[in-house]
Computed example of a mutant assay.
Amino acid sequence: MDETYQIYVNRVAQLTIQATYQTQLQNIQKSPKFEQGKAISFPGYTVLTPPQIDDTLNREFYYQLQAIQQQLIEQIEPGMLTWLPPESFHLTLADLIWDKRYQEAVQDHPSFDDKIKACIQHSFDNYPKINLENNEPKWQLFGLLIFPRALVVGLVPCDELSYEKIIQLRRAIYQNMDLIGLGIQQQYHFTAHITLGYFSENISNLNRDKFASILTNFNDKWLETEPQVLKIREVELRKFEDMITYLPSDDNPKIEL
């Protein structure tokens, strides 16, 4: 399902232009993951880079991302988004299972948590067999993107090898037959992003033209500055309770890329 390197870069670039913003803003919705600015229960599993609070490798990158979020908070009308705490910032590499599907899976398989950990460990064990150079993938911040329920920063690979490493990891995960047997399948094209905030119940009052202009101005400024780069050295499976709480554990499967 995932695209070639060049198709991916072209698609993400298309998502950062003002005309695309104008179209997407017609379809934004309140996120069901938050109520009155607070995260609600939304349990599940994901494969991600360590959240900002645990990531010592990318401190400068996340410092800059936090500054960007703060500037957006100052420019966007209050109450339009529920902004995520910077310590929860992370890059999701493979969505797995969440919310009602996760709750149903636990009911059907009482040892589901152990099974999903075993499946992901198996995928990680198979990944090193792929003959790729031993360099950590690097992805650069490219621009702000509008998702149906969230405002995010999009990332593109710094080179084709960085892209291929992540796509091969996703294949090792999503083509794992034991994981498919648990009812987990790939559902989306990969769009590398870090979420800054989710749209709130107040979006009916959003000035969409102004919002699109703010995002475009941010993207124009980034074209004139040194790209901010996220280094992806370690990836792990984590359980989450909601969209700000990703639980560390000594028995979470991990892999160094």
Rank of each mutant, 00 (worst) to 15 (best):
Q6D: 11
I7F: 01
V9N: 00
N10K: 01
T16W: 02
Q18T: 01
Q22G: 05
N27R: 12
N27K: 14
P32F: 04
L48W: 10
T49S: 13
L57R: 11
R59G: 05
E60N: 06
Y62P: 03
L65Y: 07
A67T: 08
Q69C: 03
Q70E: 14
E77L: 10
T82C: 05
S88G: 07
L93F: 00
L93H: 00
L96D: 09
K100M: 08
R101C: 02
E104H: 13
E104A: 13
F112K: 07
D113Y: 08
D114K: 13
C119T: 05
S123N: 10
F124Y: 11
L132D: 13
Q140I: 00
L145F: 01
I146F: 04
R149S: 11
L151W: 04
V152H: 09
G154Q: 01
L155R: 06
E160S: 14
L161W: 13
Y163A: 13
K165Y: 03
I166Q: 00
L169A: 11
A172G: 15
I173V: 14
I173D: 09
L179F: 06
I184D: 11
F199I: 07
N202V: 00
N202Q: 13
N205K: 11
L206A: 07
N207D: 15
D209L: 10
D209P: 00
S213C: 08
I214N: 07
I214A: 06
N217M: 09
Q228P: 09
V229P: 02
R238V: 04
R238A: 02
T245N: 15
Y246C: 02
P248E: 10
S249P: 00
D250I: 11
K254T: 15
